[in-house]
Design a protein around this nucleic acid. Structure first.
Length: 956
RNA sequence: GCAGGGGUGCCGGAGCGGUCAAACGGGCUAGGCUUAGGACCUAGUGGCUUAGUGCCUACGCAGGUUCGAACCCUGUCUCCUGCACCA
């Protein structure tokens, strides 16, 4: 049994010792490939491993193909997660502490030491410092050909300085603007919050809802109703007020609003000047009326126990025609004099309230809410859930299929989907309405504080619609290779809707916003240009370049060539030689030739990256190519801690080893498709590789140079094609088809050839050995090195990719081999049918001579046309005319089923000779005499059935 | 809701207008090899037929375009993924 782990360690150590993947500027053509830097989260899993391994296989091929390959990896620590972990550990969060203990455990034995280390994670820096070397180690177990000297993190000084430079460029170009932005906000934390900060935020996410506040004139004030459906305002019949709630009068700017107290408190966070000046009981408003905006109708104020002061303004406008709740509530009042009396309402007036039709939706009449309540047999307001569902359905249907009808003033005839926006905007413009945000559900932050929506009025945005920027980005995209090409359209779509994106946050790790130190640059916006740093990171470390030197002039000079070496060097205090070396390195390695990433990065990271390059770097340094990989499932489902199906790299390394992982990954799915990790399948791959490893040892251990026997012509042809094809597949980063060839196709054809090799085996082995091992190297670098080392002293990782011998590619030889195989199969079948076990003699009758000419001619004709008459006419002009009777029957059936046409047609003599030469093979197989003849010389009726490539078979 | 991607044999999954009853891998059945197991080899694995290369039915469902469709078009059902002060 091969100890794959020891073998893997051995070669990884050798590579590291010889520094064979540490690359420098040289005369060769360079190739610079990157993957998104992974986020530090504790331990790496097969999701991380996929992207790095695919890039590795591909870049190893390119290295063997003569390129000077740079493949670096850095680490991302910006944003909230690392900080969140530190906070949790600081707050003695037991779960997090245990989790991190489990991450530390594989590396540290002593229990007290583990505790000490995890405790130190209170400082995010310590966490990062601990995990980065571990992650590099874990990645290394995959056998990556990475230049680790060039690693850095997004918290490093060079990264921060680069981001500052980048945002300086944005500022210069007016790509940064400030404005208002609603965020989920915790009053107690005094900060914006994310899902992680909200109780149950992950299972029951909180959304921001935008309410339109309709202002109903009431005495000298406005009764303010909150609605999600401003387009229904033409159907308003009344207002709903909770009789038992105490509302407030608040001064909002110059106006006086009547709203719930809770609402007033919320509005204080939404860019409004709020002053509470009085109180007002809900009861006191009942039966009064107010003036609805725009439609200028007086509507009556009625009681509803479903007005929640916590939602919106606590006041709701009633549109019973389209809102099931409203209709139900109104109906209850209309049906119950008792209820009316309870609130001192005029029963008759209420009974007179008539619904107003406003929207025509698919499948419904004037009053959808009436219909649906009847249909769903809802009888009381207490059936809250049913009503909710009915509301949702009507809303959805109205929104997508509805049209405003003639009652809706100037909006009549418009689709609801359009009218909604327009009505809202019109109302806002004329100050008849306002906007407020609210949460989609009651929610609390982890410290128990209430979550509300706050409007930040000085939020920084990157303005992707800034003048000229999108055009540049499109220019960049147009010149890029996108793999697979089908994703280009998605880029275009993304570019078109990209608008203003908040680019700074109030919390998290990262680079301080240079123009407003209260803000931190957000973690997607800070990682769009960092690939440039790979060209410098090692040198900046080596030269000990510090903060005072990484000024904008530094990047202006190195990246953009602005300024004179002498001046800049002097100004920054960097020796000229060093500065020149860094510039040379950047100029050599940049642009980024290839970026391999996850599909879901397309609409954010990758698009931002293109924009950033377009904004900050010269055209020649814009990215060249992006390729995509699909996601990783484990056991058919998404990996998650709660499901317990996360497969870590440590596990992979212990149970299967790098080469098994690499082979499984590349062979089981195409790069852009979903990879499903199934332990049983991986196990099989492991076994397959073990037998392949043994096979390769056999091949390399038993070799003799010499001329390859002609009997291997078909084998040689297939092997040469395999060499050719695997190169072609790799060029297109088609890793699966490449893996298929080296893992399955070649062993298969080899074993077949080996079976008949006899004494020629060593020569056969010699013919393929070196090239085959080289072909395995990108996929299975460890096994390949080991086998290679049997006969060579250098590294196969650095060997030249094999060339194929075009002259040996011989379709005829392959066809002939196929012919013999088919014959053998057919004979077996017939023997079985005839129930003859030991035939005395087998006659093989080669088809009639003219048939060969016919098929040759037919194949040519069918290239041009499928028209039967045309084909027939052409045929009849030749001496085929003699066989017209048969041809007339043949052609229709051939046209109907093209598969009946042999894919290659020899001539009769060649086929006859070939069979004669090889009849001993068949004789050996069937242990009987084989007789070969031409149909033209046979009287057997079956002889006439023979077709080119398909001799008739007669068993005696 | 918006956006994107799928539905193919016992399974994973190729194919994306004609050499397709469907690559490749796996499973299963039979046979060989083997002390046994494993590994490996050979054949079979939609139905029906047959001294072989034949016919029929199939690529979610329903239509359409075409000499010809798993592949193109339309509708329909259905599954998955992304949409955060997550990265």
């Amino acid at each position: 049994m091969v100890d794959f782990k020891a073998l893997q360690d051995k070669w990884q150590k050798k590579w590291a010792k010889e520094k064979i993947f540490e690359t420098e500027v040289n005369k060769k053509k360079k190739f610079f490939i990157t993957i998104p830097y992974p986020y530090i989260s504790g331990s790496l899993h097969i999701g991380h491993a996929r992207v790095v391994t695919e890039a590795d296989v591909y870049s190893r091929y390119l290295r063997m193909n003569g390129k000077n390959v740079l493949y670096p990896i850095a680490f991302h620590i910006s944003g909230t997660p690392v900080l969140g972990i530190s906070m949790a550990i600081k707050n003695k969060d037991k779960k997090k502490i245990e989790l991190y203990k489990s991450y530390v455990k594989p590396y540290i034995k002593d229990r007290k030491e583990i505790e000490k280390i995890v405790n130190s994670f209170k400082d995010p820096k310590k966490l990062v410092e601990f995990f980065i070397p571990k992650m590099i180690n874990e990645f290394s177990t995959l056998g990556l050909a990475v230049d680790w000297r060039r690693s850095f993190t997004s918290g490093d000084l060079i990264h921060q300085k680069l981001v500052e430079w980048q945002f300086g460029k944005y500022k210069e170009k007016n790509y940064l603007i400030q404005g208002k932005y609603p965020v989920l906000y915790s009053k107690t934390l005094g900060n914006a919050v994310g899902e992680d900060d909200i109780i149950d935020g992950d299972i029951n996410p909180v959304d921001k809802l935008e309410f339109t506040l309709l202002k109903f004139k009431y005495k000298d004030a406005f009764l303010v109703a909150a609605t999600l459906r401003p387009e229904t305002m033409y159907g308003q019949t009344n207002m709903w007020i909770h009789p038992d709630v105490e509302y407030v009068q608040a001064k909002i700017g110059n106006e006086k609003w009547i709203i719930s107290k809770e609402c007033a408190e919320k509005l204080k966070f939404q860019d409004k000047d709020v002053k509470i000046i009085g109180k007002l009981s809900g009861k006191s408003l009942l039966g009064k009326s107010c003036m609805a905006p725009v439609i200028n109708r007086r509507v009556i104020i009625l009681p509803s126990l479903h007005c929640n002061p916590n939602v919106g303004t606590g006041i709701v406008t009633s549109v019973p025609s389209d809102a099931p709740f409203d209709w139900m509530a109104l109906k209850e009042l209309q049906d119950s004099d008792e209820l009316c009396k309870k609130y001192n309402l005029d029963c008759n007036a209420i009974k007179k309230i008539k619904l107003i039709p406003i929207i025509k939706s698919k499948g419904y009449g004037d009053f959808p809410s009436v219909e649906i309540i009847k249909k769903r047999e809802i009888t009381s307001l207490d059936q809250h859930e049913k009503l909710q569902k009915a509301t949702q359905e009507i809303y959805k249907l109205g929104f997508h299929t509805g049209t405003m009808i003639e009652t809706c003033g100037k909006y009549a005839g418009m689709k609801v989907i359009e009218a909604k926006e327009e009505i809202k905007n019109d109302l806002l413009k004329t100050k008849k309405a306002d906007i407020m945000y609210d949460t989609s559900r009651d929610s609390k932050s982890r410290d128990g504080g209430e979550i509300i929506v706050a409007i930040l009025d000085n939020q920084w945005f990157i303005d992707f619609n800034a003048k000229g920027w999108k055009k540049e980005a499109h220019d960049c995209l147009n010149k890029m290779d996108i793999l697979p090409e089908k994703f280009r359209k998605q880029f275009e779509d993304t570019f078109s809707w990209l608008d203003k994106r908040p680019c700074a946050r109030k919390r998290g790790l990262g680079t301080k916003f240079p123009y407003d130190k209260d803000w931190v640059i957000e973690s997607l916006s800070d990682s769009t240009l960092y690939m440039t740093l790979y060209t410098l990171a090692d040198k900046i470390k080596k030269f000990k370049i510090g903060e005072s030197q990484l000024k904008p002039e530094f990047f202006d000079y190195v990246y953009l060539g602005q300024g004179k070496l002498k001046n800049i060097a002097k100004k920054l205090g960097i020796p000229e030689k060093q500065l020149a070396e860094m510039k040379e390195s950047f100029d050599y390695w940049y642009p980024n030739d290839h970026r391999h990433t996850f599909i879901s990065h397309l609409s954010n990271h990758l698009s931002f990256m293109i924009f950033a390059h377009a904004a900050c770097l010269q055209k020649k340094n814009w990215p060249k190519k992006i390729s995509f990989h699909g996601m990783v499932l484990s056991g058919g489902v998404k990996m998650s801690k709660s499901k317990g199906n996360v497969v870590t790299l440590l596990e992979v390394n212990n149970l299967y080893g790098a080469d098994t992982f690499r082979a499984f990954l590349c062979n089981s799915t195409s790069v852009d498709s979903i990879l499903n990790w199934e332990t049983s399948e991986v196990e099989k791959m492991k076994n397959h590789l073990l037998s392949l490893f043994a096979l390769c040892h056999e091949i390399i251990g038993n070799r003799k140079s010499g001329k390859l026997n002609v009997k291997f012509a078909a084998f040689a042809s297939k092997f040469e094609s395999s060499v050719k094809q695997s190169g072609e597949y790799l060029d297109k980063m088609n890793l699966r088809d490449y893996a298929n060839i080296v893992l399955h196709a070649i062993p298969r054809i080899y074993r077949k050839a080996k079976a008949v090799a006899d004494d020629d085996l060593p020569v056969l082995n010699d013919y393929i050995a070196e090239r085959y091992i080289k072909m395995l190297a990108p996929l299975l670098p460890h096994y390949a090195e080991e086998i290679w080392s049997v006969a060579n002293k250098d590294f196969v990782s650095l060997a030249a990719w094999p060339k194929y011998n075009k002259s040996k590619i011989d379709p005829v030889a392959e066809f002939k081999e196929e012919l013999i195989e088919n014959l053998s199969t057919d004979i077996k079948r017939i023997l079985k049918l005839v129930k003859v076990e030991k035939p005395k003699k087998i006659n093989l009758i080669v088809a009639l001579g003219w048939r060969y000419n016919f098929f040759t001619m037919f194949k040519e004709l069918i290239e041009k046309t499928h028209d039967m008459k045309a084909i027939l006419n052409s045929m009849m002009k030749t001496d085929m005319k003699r066989y017209s009777k048969e041809i007339v029957k043949l052609i229709p059936s051939l046209l109907k089923d093209v598969s009946k046409i042999p894919h290659m047609v020899l001539d009769q003599d060649t086929e006859y000779d070939f069979l004669s030469q090889n009849k001993n093979l068949l004789e050996k197989e069937f242990n009987t005499k084989i007789n070969i003849m031409k149909a033209d010389e046979s009287k057997e009726p079956k002889a006439r059935q023979a077709a080119p490539g398909k001799p008739a078979i007669l068993v005696e």
